[in-house]
Simulated assay, not measured.
Amino acid sequence: MTDKHIFEAVDKSLKDVMRIVNERNAELPFGRKVVVFGGDFLQNLPVVSKESRADVVRASLFSSYLWSSCKVLRLTKNMRLQVGRTSDNVDDIWKFSEWNLEIGDGLAGGENDEEVDLQFPDDLLIQQVADPIVSIVNVTYPDLQSQLWNPDYLQERAIFAPTHEIVEAVNDYVLSKIDEDEVIYLSSDEVSNDDRGMADPDLHSTEYLNSIKCSGLPNHQLKLKVGAMVILLRNIDQSCAVAEDSAALL
């Protein structure tokens, strides 16, 4: 996901450093140092804000003058998925990975002009869909109430969602399936009015601030039940973090 100009800057820096050893190094990629790039263009393209698809491609390493000096090495075995699997499971995993790569390479469904109808295997589809969220939760987490305290049951399942709104809808429905009393915790909703803050604390109402839902900012309401799955993403209490680090050093 790194812009090609970053790699090109490293290339020029290493050339300047390594030319001290040998003048010819100034003409070789990365000053004759071996550099390994890891990644997959099908999954991780550079992030270029508010630009077109062509601008994103132009920012990738593939569009750099360095690409002509690169040798592509392809990994063909998924070692992590094969550990502890039977031969039948490995064969199924291989078939799925091949089908997945065909979609990424634009080969699935035959020749096309970037528009094609794909045939998905039946075992990847939820056949009976009245409410999408209800259906996918019930299929992914069958008999949830009796398995709440089974760590293996929870570790083997996950639901991916494209937006924060869908994540919240899935969380609310899963929480509703737990037969316990719900407790709601609220964030602090007072606007700071110190010298570094806003001159007018009434510029944004607390109702507006509490309604904001975006990446990196916790929701105003936190709904919990006994048995609900909770993941701590980061410690936002820096004073506690510093105290813990100091204790560890002592």
Rank of each mutant, 00 (worst) to 15 (best):
H5E: 11
F7Y: 10
V10R: 02
K12T: 09
S13N: 06
M18G: 00
P29Q: 04
F41E: 13
S52T: 15
S52D: 14
S60H: 09
Y65M: 02
L66W: 01
K71C: 05
K71V: 11
R74M: 08
T76G: 01
K77P: 06
Q82W: 09
G84H: 01
G84R: 00
T86H: 00
D88W: 00
V90S: 09
G106C: 13
L107N: 12
A108Q: 14
G109M: 11
D113Y: 01
E114M: 10
E115D: 13
V129Q: 05
A130I: 13
I133T: 10
I133Y: 06
S146M: 12
L148E: 09
L148M: 11
W149N: 14
W149V: 06
D152M: 14
A158I: 06
T163I: 08
E168P: 01
E168C: 09
V170P: 07
Y173T: 05
K177Y: 03
E180T: 05
I184G: 02
E190W: 04
S192F: 03
A199I: 02
H204P: 03
S205H: 04
T206D: 09
G216N: 07
L217E: 03
L222E: 11
K223Y: 10
V226I: 14
D237S: 05
S239A: 13
A241Q: 05
A243V: 02
D245Y: 04
